[in-house]
Amino acid sequence: MIRYIFRRLLWAIVLFLAVTIVTYVIFYLIPVDPARLAAGRNPTPQEVKNVAHYLGTDKPVYYQYGLFLKRLVIDHSLGYSFANRQSVNSAIFAAAPVTISLVLGGAILWMFIALPVGIYSALHPRSRLDRVAMASVLVGISAHPVWIGLMLSYIFGFRLELFPIQGYCNLKGSIAGQSCGGPIDWLYHMVLPWLTFAVLYAAFYVRMIRTNVMETLNEDYVRTARAKGASEIRVMVQHVIRNAMLPVVTMLGMDIAIALGGAVLTETVFGLPGLGKLAITGISTFDLPIIVGTVVFASVMVISFNLLVDILYAWVDPRIRLA
């Protein structure tokens, strides 16, 4: 077990290095000249040169990357925005709670939908609910996330006036420049984004849970449990659900991680100032430190969630734990 975790940890570090190198190389080498971008409007050549020196872009790439890594690992700093000289760290820390609210809330909602529906569908294939569920799954995975968001906000926000269409409220009370705050406002503003998110993912998860449960129901050990005289409920809880959920947990971890780094579409539709929005703003203004910062943050999320899931998986599944 310890060896397994150690191996996964090592691999996580390798992944981190690989991701940062690729990100760094692609985004600092491909643009014509980061210094020119950073120097503001119509810079003189001397200004560009000064900026290049300041940014370190006049040095070779490996040196630049080393510097970047050193700043990241030792000073925990992702640098400063080209656009407003604000530290990338503070921009990310401001945006992260929004994205985390969106993703975790959405994940809870979609699992609440997907678990019962998926299990029911598996137990009653071709029943009416199963057919309805499978049809909505197809729509869910075929519709565009933006469109789902717009439809929900048109119907529930604009037409029925149940929820606000746009904006985010801070969970812990209002902060400067915001008119609203506190848990109630936060919840009220998050309902539609959560729904959008949930519709998207619930579809995947209903299908996945259904398939897994159906496959597990056909396992020989389920028959063994029945032959022992276990009741259907006991068979489901002790022998089917737990085994069927193993791959679902992995998937859930991955999806949450990916969404934390890129709930771009939902955030733009509902005007949530999260990480996705930050990245898009960075991209549209060629603000390289912001782009690299968000990509690095998102990768770290993916990598650490993968690590977490691996460890969790090993803990639940003896075949890995004891291997």
Partner: peptide
């Protein structure tokens, strides 16, 4: 009681 053909798959792997 019943014993099945394939002992490799007849026991629950996570218990």
């Amino acid at each position: 009681s019943m014993i099945f053909q394939d002992p490799m798959t007849s026991l629950n792997p996570v218990h």
